[in-house]
Computed example of a mutant assay.
Amino acid sequence: MSDNELSLEKILAGSDADKNQPTDYQAGFAAVIGRPNVGKSTIMNELLGQKLSITSHKPQTTRHRIHGIYTTQEHQIIYVDTPGMHLGGEKSINDYMNRTANSAFADVDVILFVVEAGRWTKEDEAVAKKLKGIDTPVVVLMNKIDNYKNKEDLFPFMQKVGESVTMDTLIPISAYKKSGLDLIKKEVLKYLPHQEKIFPEEYITDRSQRFLAAEIIREKLMRTLGEEVPYGSTVEIEQFKYDEEEGRWLINALILVERKGQKQIVIGKKGELIKQMGIQARKDLIALLDGRVHLELWVKVKENWSDDARALASLGYDDNYSS
């Protein structure tokens, strides 16, 4: 896919879709929702059969809405990965993520509500309340069942979920063990309309390569630093181009933090941490771009960016689905 993403409005208008689809073809949207760190992005990646959304053990890794497109000869399922719906957090970025997650309820054909087996929190309860009264079918995905040797131990929890969520069905799964994924696809297809492809068949997402590059780098930041990663950090791509003469991609990225002390945390002693992030990110970027990559990472302090609406918009955190 080129760096200039095709507008969603143009795609939905069908100007680039195949007009010769059979009438029994199915296409539609399935939103993947739930609280932070419950496995939504991992599930979507497994359903797509390739990595698209970034993952880490840190809550609120996903900050944007991302469409993952799974196309076959019979159907096209567009999975909508969303930030985790969370309570608390008064900064502008928290408000943005919750708005983005809530927007997934609109104009989708089915909602996949992910919960963690054996664990029901106040945030799960808040999501369940939002689902009450909506007309869209709801399928609960009970993830991480591999943590239970005796599945009968989950019956009380399943009853609790059944009492709390207005749903059409519940599917026990394990994204880690890749079990139950075929059941998800079969269930989703029950609710998709019969219509032509929404996206061209070669598309795997509606996001640009530039956006995906920034996400890859942010993933390495979160995985490398673990609990030490500054929450107020993000990645801004300054240069993203292919050099014909050198035969490689040239990518310059800024890791933005909010305080001077955080800058040194990201860089690490003698620059070892940022070097490690660069090595790991470059491997994934080579796979993404299918070519050689020259990557340069820098760290810059941008005070209070996560609570500044203008700064958020300039960094792609806005409601206009910027890439």
Rank of each mutant, 00 (worst) to 15 (best):
L154H: 06
I33K: 00
G88W: 04
I237T: 11
V229G: 04
D182K: 10
A30K: 03
T62F: 06
M277A: 05
T55L: 02
I274S: 09
I265P: 01
S53R: 00
K122N: 13
H67I: 11
A27V: 05
L189N: 05
I255D: 02
T82V: 13
E5A: 15
L6R: 08
R207T: 04
E245A: 15
K51F: 03
I33V: 13
A213F: 02
I267W: 05
Q76Y: 05
F29K: 02
G247E: 06
Y176G: 00
A175C: 04
L6D: 04
K132L: 12
L285P: 01
A253E: 00
V266G: 00
D243K: 13
G291H: 06
G34L: 03
F155Y: 03
E163V: 11
N143Q: 09
L52Q: 00
I198W: 04
G316E: 06
K177W: 05
F29V: 09
L312Y: 07
L52N: 02
Q209A: 15
A104S: 10
A281P: 01
Y242E: 07
L254S: 11
A27Y: 01
R210W: 03
K58R: 14
Q262W: 05
D308F: 07
I78E: 01
T72V: 14
A287L: 13
L289V: 14
T23R: 13
R248D: 04
A30R: 04
D146C: 05
D24A: 12
P22L: 10
I286V: 15
L250H: 10
M167T: 03
K269M: 09
G88L: 12
E187D: 15
Q264H: 11
E187K: 14
N20A: 14
I134S: 02
D81I: 02
K220C: 01
K160Q: 13
L250D: 09
V32A: 08
Y231Q: 08
S92A: 15
I286T: 10
Q239D: 14
Y321H: 10
G133H: 08
F29A: 06
E258K: 09
E272I: 14
I11V: 13
I255N: 06
K275E: 06
K144Q: 07
M167E: 03
K149F: 08
K10P: 00
S56C: 13
G278N: 05
K178I: 03
G68D: 01
L183R: 08
P193Q: 08
E272L: 13
K190R: 14
A313L: 08
N304E: 11
